[in-house]
Design a protein around this nucleic acid. Structure first.
Length: 410
RNA sequence: GCGAUCGUAGCUCAGUUGGUUAGAGCGCCGGUUUGUGGUACCGGAGGUCGUGGGUUCGAGACCCAUCGAUCGCCCCA
């Protein structure tokens, strides 16, 4: 009988990596509460149109990366490739408008059919924070300050830079897009094959091409700043001055664009060079047009998502807290005594583990190999059942543990 | 979807130009020793060499396909 293999691009996370993963999530939960973002839980799948209508039919995510299937009733469903669309749908279908402006946060698995590589998986995990129903630039600022504090508390802010741009309002963005098409079409033959194709589908994407043939032209390409309406310029100015006031460092990235169609105004990425090709660790922006694409009223909103795996890689190994007590039961007739001691210790708030299998003579040796504050052996001596404990360093914990253990045989 | 590198024991790996019964360390199990903060020695279990074809007298090694991993492209968090 052969054992079924895990699905390509999925991960079974264990040990130090799992601890780092949990640390990222726990830190996010702690920080998000400081900013009063409310926790929400979302379904992992939605009707396919939730994503296709909001993210954009022509995007790579929708056109070739979604896990889409018909359920038994013949309805087309899709495993969520991102959080934002589902949250927008929930906002509309649950009447969450009554809570606007609504600050929400969640985290969990997402699914995209991509070629796995470093920091990229088919089932991956993100943190997500959104503010829905707030048109003010202060909402953008709050979200970015939250992101900045999260990275700082994870201890990885030093290697990560906030790249910031504005895409302008709908009209600004469209005028810029047309100017880019004009500009690049003139040199179309000299662009990379990928960019020649992008020219039709998503010309903004040419701006962050890595191909040197494209980079030569990107430098002199039309700048969004020349197409911004006065209102859009003021909005971006308010975001940047807000960040300055809050002490968040940022770098203007005039060619930073977003891959999804719904973004307007503020667009940002926190990037690092420590993760190879997958350098974006947290990204997002304002998506004022999204609610309308789902049939809702015009609703301003901003949000971001962060890759938990990528953050965990930057955080590095997190060692679990040192074990308080390791016990070796060196006599099978005393296992009950060991269980009693273990229960008392754990109920008193100390972590404890017990070795009671294998050769009785080797149990103590095994116990010594496990790093713990207190080493306890339970054995039979001339005085009968005996509990001995010792610790490398006398500490509050070791004293309390010894006191507890003394009560057992007393 | 495209390219490159790689798949040998639970883990890390060795295995010569193709040549007997595929090895080591760690880990695991047992024994002896030691006798209380990581002792030493002896023994044991564990492998259809990712999978399927092919070449050959003979394949872990060579060829093809396939699955998977890794790193890029692309995409994105």
């Amino acid at each position: 009988m052969s054992t079924p293999k895990a699905i390509r691009g999925t991960q079974d996370i264990f040990g130090a990596e799992a601890e780092a993963f949990a640390h990222v999530v726990e830190t996010f939960e702690r920080v998000r509460k400081l900013y009063r973002f409310r926790r929400i839980e979302m379904p992992v799948f939605e009707k396919t149109e939730v994503f296709s209508r909001s993210i954009g039919e022509t995007t790579d995510v929708v056109s070739k990366e979604m896990y889409t299937f018909d359920d038994r009733g013949g309805e087309s469903l899709t495993l969520r490739p991102e959080f934002t669309a589902g949250i927008a749908r929930a906002y509309l279908t649950n009447g969450w408008q009554q809570h606007a402006p609504l600050k929400v946060a969640t985290h969990g698995p997402l699914f995209r059919y991509e070629r796995p590589q470093k920091g990229r998986y088919r089932q991956f995990h993100q943190l997500d924070a959104e503010i829905i129903g707030a048109a003010e630039p202060q909402a953008d600022v709050e979200l970015l300050v939250l992101a900045d504090q999260l990275l700082k508390e994870l201890g990885i802010a030093d290697g990560v830079t906030l790249m910031l741009n504005t895409l302008g309002d709908g009209a600004s963005r469209e005028a810029w897009r047309l100017a880019l098409i004009d500009y690049f079409r003139a040199v179309q033959g000299e662009l990379s094959e990928d960019s020649q194709e992008r020219l039709e589908r998503n010309p903004l994407r040419i701006l962050d091409s890595k191909d040197p043939r494209d980079k030569a032209f990107v430098a002199d390409a039309p700048k969004i700043d020349d197409f911004l309406s006065g209102e859009a310029r003021d909005f971006f100015g308010a975001v940047t001055s807000g960040l300055d006031a809050a002490g968040v460092a940022w770098t203007r990235a005039p060619s930073l664009v977003r891959g999804l169609d719904y973004y307007r105004h503020t667009a940002f990425e926190f990037v690092t060079d420590r993760l190879g090709a997958q350098g974006t660790v947290l990204g997002g922006g304002r998506y004022d047009g999204l609610m309308e694409s789902l049939g809702g009223p015009p609703t301003p909103a901003v949000g971001w998502a962060a890759g938990i795996e990528r953050l965990a890689m930057l955080v590095g190994d997190i060692e679990p807290k040192l074990l308080d007590v390791i016990m070796a039961v060196e006599d099978d007739s005393l296992i009950g005594l060991g269980l009693q001691a273990q229960a008392i210790l754990r109920k008193s708030g100390f972590s404890a583990e017990m070795i009671f299998s294998g050769s009785p003579r080797k149990r103590f040796d095994k116990a010594t190999k496990i790093n713990a504050r207190v080493l306890v052996s339970i054995l039979t001596t001339n005085d009968g059942p005996t509990i001995r404990s010792q610790s490398a360093n006398v500490s509050e914990v070791s004293l309390q543990v010894e006191t507890l253990l003394k009560t057992i045989l007393a």
